[in-house]
């Protein structure tokens, strides 16, 4: 039960009195082999879910750090076909369920059904869902149907400007978790949240039954202070990629976030 694994993994972290941690790393970054080492390291360091970025040439929702990592991964030869092949072939298994995050065109060209079957079968239950940032509700039916055949989640992204009726519509179709984009902008670290985040958090909380993951702009745990309540999970991408780029270790980054936090 793959989509449910995502929900369960986040809830398990919350039961331990902490926010679930969802690191994001681009497939094939910094190079094809090191990516797998980092994935294992993140898993070992206690990631509750791991988001793997599928590189795309034109990532419109991403800021400079993730966009550059994507470009580098493409130059390294990372493709969706490569990722699925390696996922099937590698013996090591992650404890954390995996989510593939990528733009629609590579999935579309691969074939939505073929992708879902192979991702679902690659390592049973391990790839539990997808995030496709350029598929709003109106365009998501085909992808959602393909993923549903393998019981994988299509995780919705909602933001500070999403009206309540759209949140409710997303909530009706949601499984796994919901991703609340914390800024009206692209991925990348921000010094602080906009005051509107409180309203959006509360609106998402009352509309979605699945856990709420807060992402975009997160670099330090202190940023969560001052929110009306803790989200069930946090996603961090750019700050982690930047640390890796500068030669830092994934485990050190994770350690900062692992302190038990209030609110659970």
């Amino acid at each position: 039960m793959s989509a449910e694994r995502l929900t369960e993994s986040i809830k398990a972290a919350n039961r331990q009195g902490r926010v679930a941690l969802i690191p994001f790393i681009t497939a094939g970054f910094p190079d094809l082999e090191k990516f797998w080492d980092i994935l294992a390291e993140l898993d070992e360091a206690g990631a509750d879910v791991i988001e793997i970025g599928v590189p795309f040439s034109d990532p419109v929702a991403d800021g400079p750090v993730v966009a550059a990592a994507s470009q580098r991964a493409i130059a390294n030869g990372a493709t969706l076909a490569w990722l699925l092949r390696e996922l099937a072939a590698r013996k090591e298994r992650c404890k954390a369920p995996l989510v593939l995050m990528g733009y629609y065109n590579p999935f579309l060209q691969y074939g939505l059904e073929k992708f879902a079957q192979q991702a679902g079968a690659a390592r049973v239950g391990e790839v539990s869902g997808c995030i496709v940032p350029d598929l709003p509700l109106e365009e998501s039916a085909a992808m959602r149907a393909a993923l549903a055949t393998e019981n994988m989640a299509l995780i919705p992204l909602v933001g500070l400007n999403t009206p309540e009726e759209r949140m409710a519509a997303y909530a009706r179709a949601a499984s796994g978790y919901v991703y609340l984009v914390s800024v009206l902008g692209t991925t990348g670290e921000r010094a602080s949240f906009s005051p509107e985040i409180s309203t959006a958090l509360q609106m998402a909380n009352r509309n979605f039954a699945v856990p709420l993951a807060l992402g975009f702009g997160l670099a330090r745990p202190e940023q969560l202070e001052g929110l009306p309540f803790r989200p069930q999970a946090v996603v961090f991408g750019s700050a982690l990629l930047k640390q890796l780029e500068e030669g830092g270790r994934a485990a050190d980054f994770m350690a900062r976030w692992k302190q038990p936090s209030a609110g659970f």
């Binding site: 929702a61 509700l137 109106e138 365009e139």
Partner: peptide, 11 residues
């Protein structure tokens, strides 16, 4: 055609 954009651009 269509509207293949991030949700943030739908409004």
């Amino acid at each position: 055609g269509g509207q293949y954009v991030p949700e943030l651009l739908m409004p």
